[in-house]
Design a protein around this nucleic acid. Sequence first.
DNA 1: GTCTATAGCTTGATAGAC
DNA 2: GTCTATCAAGCTATAGAC
Lengths: 186, 186
Amino acid sequence: MANATLNDEELAERAGLIFRTFGYEGASLNRLAAATGLEKASLYYRFPGGKDAILMAAVEGVGAWFEANVFEPLRKPGPLAHRVDAVAARLREFYGDGTKPCVLDTLSLRGAAPELQSALQGALAEWLKAFASVATEAGFPTDEAERRAEQALIAIEGSLILTRVTGKSDLFLSVLAELRPRLIGE
Amino acid sequence: MANATLNDEELAERAGLIFRTFGYEGASLNRLAAATGLEKASLYYRFPGGKDAILMAAVEGVGAWFEANVFEPLRKPGPLAHRVDAVAARLREFYGDGTKPCVLDTLSLRGAAPELQSALQGALAEWLKAFASVATEAGFPTDEAERRAEQALIAIEGSLILTRVTGKSDLFLSVLAELRPRLIGE
DNA sequence: GTCTATAGCTTGATAGAC
DNA sequence: GTCTATCAAGCTATAGAC
């Protein structure tokens, strides 16, 4: 990699990809060290709390990314359809066309700290709220808006799994393409 | 537990639940031993290939369960709607109302044998084909039938994730309740 | 056919040199 | 602030008693 030592943000981002890809138990310190270009002992210097601290930093990093690239853009003024399309494009990046798993999926398996579980729960709730707000703004009643938000998120998560198994991106990409009609009904 | 030594089928089934719950790297031999009531050395006697052999037996067991409880019932004669509803009921059991993860999800993370990946790929293809056949039988053209099969499976996998994170079963159960209209259009 | 005991390796984590 | 070297505990796997 040849990095002149990464800052905490970049560190957490690289670690996050390892956790997403291998899960909590599969994300060994050796893999984390290889992915960050630091030795294990250096990771402990940067994150004295060890593996769990790296994990929480990674999860917070993902949360910050979603706030900046999904939640905030969805709240901004401007044509609703444009906002949703722009967010779909950012999600496509985040998930690497469907090749990179979702934190909500990978890290919700048993084995990690219970502290993590509530963090994931909060992140999911926030995501659902952001999607539902968009549907509400599009004119749907509260119930229908929430239903649409749930269905949209279910489709994203489900298509990520099918894409991961088949190795073909088209299912995930077509779900993203249908995000706009799903949320705001065209 | 108090088992008078389990047969290979029961053994694979219990192991399968551990693999589904903890993932490949999280399914340690200690956990497998605890779940089966056998000591580690005994597991090696039953499955000389070790952990990977147990995994493959578990995956094959899941495959056999799906053949007997999903694919075959969907092919049987009788009212189409009844068949789909019956299968939805069996799926509800298999996934423990959404509390038990799907093999396609949990085991498709990196870390396991590449042999497994193609097994999962085949299982997914078979499942899609079974669902598409039902939609075709209901009168939908091939393209539409395949689309409906994909959307149904995406909804199942996605709702399992959301259910796992929130801890509430209702999303998964409502997806199952909508399986019939999704596949055969009411 | 199951057990106890243990080998050899990898894990998460620490000590101490630079 | 990063490194090498090392620890105890866990891992997969094997040997051998019964």
